[in-house]
């Protein structure tokens, strides 16, 4: 195998890992970074997105529209959850963790009862291509591009739109934002819906690549949390670079020793980074800046 195919293989592995880390994490990161809420039901929002995507595709919609439905469905559930649960617990972060954990159990068991232990999947589109002796899935490349697109869209949303400026003002000095006329409750609702929608998007995008079971959220949640813990509270200064670093660790360890070592590598990376940078990468960057 020549150096070019080897390089391509490494790059592909990296892109695959990066996309999974970033897409899993960004919904969680938006909700944690903007609202300080640790959403343990994040995996179930992902599951919701995947299930709705699969259901709508089975009903005859093309996959991209199905993914859109999955995203919107999760965002809508997010609005309800914020309104009925999270809103009442803003002053009590520990209670939020317990409440979202409870929601996650209800959602998993509820899905098991209502839909059954598994749901018919969606075929992976686009097929594959060959480089050297190996074949690669085109859809994985699409996922990588999707991850970059999501980061770019979030950057534009939070920096270039009125909602983004008001949302950042609200996290920085909430009472002052309110005193200037910002409906901070509405901002929190929309932010939570945005995070839930991003989780749904991740579920929809990965629905064609995996078995759909009620506990599928667990597949994402470890990497999502690892990325957010390492990245810290800022999506752009944190999640994106954390996704990059962890993708190198994970793809390197995986191709060296297999899946299990990829996961172990992630955990070791978290322990090291948290020891050195307790507030994550973004906390470090922000401190250096001021």
């Amino acid at each position: 195998m020549d150096i070019a195919t080897l390089a391509f293989s490494a790059l592909y592995q990296f892109g695959d890992a990066f996309a999974f880390l970033v897409l899993s994490a960004c919904g969680l990161a938006v909700i944690f970074g903007m609202m300080g809420v640790i959403n343990l039901a994040h995996g179930e929002f992902i599951m919701c997105g995947a299930y709705v995507t699969a259901a709508t595709v089975h009903a005859g919609l093309p996959l991209p529209l199905g993914i859109l439905c999955g995203t919107l469905a999760s965002a809508f559930v997010g609005v309800l959850v914020e309104l009925l649960v999270i809103r009442h617990l803003y002053e009590r972060p520990l209670d939020t963790i317990v409440a979202t954990w409870g929601l996650s159990l209800i959602a998993t068991q509820g899905t098991l009862i209502l839909v059954g232990s598994t749901m018919a999947g969606v075929g992976t589109p686009f097929g594959s291509f060959q480089v050297g002796a190996y074949s690669y899935s085109i859809y994985r490349i699409v996922l990588f591009v999707a991850a970059l697109a999501v980061l770019a869209a979030l950057y534009a949303l939070f920096n270039w739109t009125r909602f983004g400026v008001l949302a950042r003002a609200t996290i920085q000095v909430p009472h002052m934002a309110a005193a200037l006329g910002v409906d901070t409750r509405l901002i929190y609702s929309l932010t939570f819906a945005c995070g839930a929608g991003l989780a749904g998007l991740a579920g929809g995008l990965y629905a064609p690549t995996m078995t759909l079971v009620p506990t599928m959220g667990a597949t994402f949640i470890m990497e999502a949390f690892v990325t957010v813990v390492i990245g810290g509270a800022d999506v752009f200064l944190g999640t994106a670079p954390a996704g990059g670093i962890l993708a190198i660790v994970k793809s390197g360890m995986t191709s060296w020793q297999g899946q299990l070592f990829g996961q172990i590598g992630l955990l070791i990376a978290v322990i090291i980074v948290v020891r050195v940078l307790p507030k994550g990468i973004s906390g470090f960057v922000l401190r250096e800046r001021t």
């Binding site: 009125r162 400026v165 008001l166 950042r168 003002a169 920085q172 000095v173 009472h175 002052m176 934002a177 309110a178 005193a179 200037l180 006329g181 910002v182 922000l286 001021t290």
Partner: peptide
Amino acid sequence: ARLGMGYVPQGRDVFPRLTVGENIAVGAAI
């Protein structure tokens, strides 16, 4: 605030990581 009260707090409470222009945009959003 939307009825026309403008509050300038003791200690100023500007949004530290927003630019001057963005701070003013928050005030203008009403």
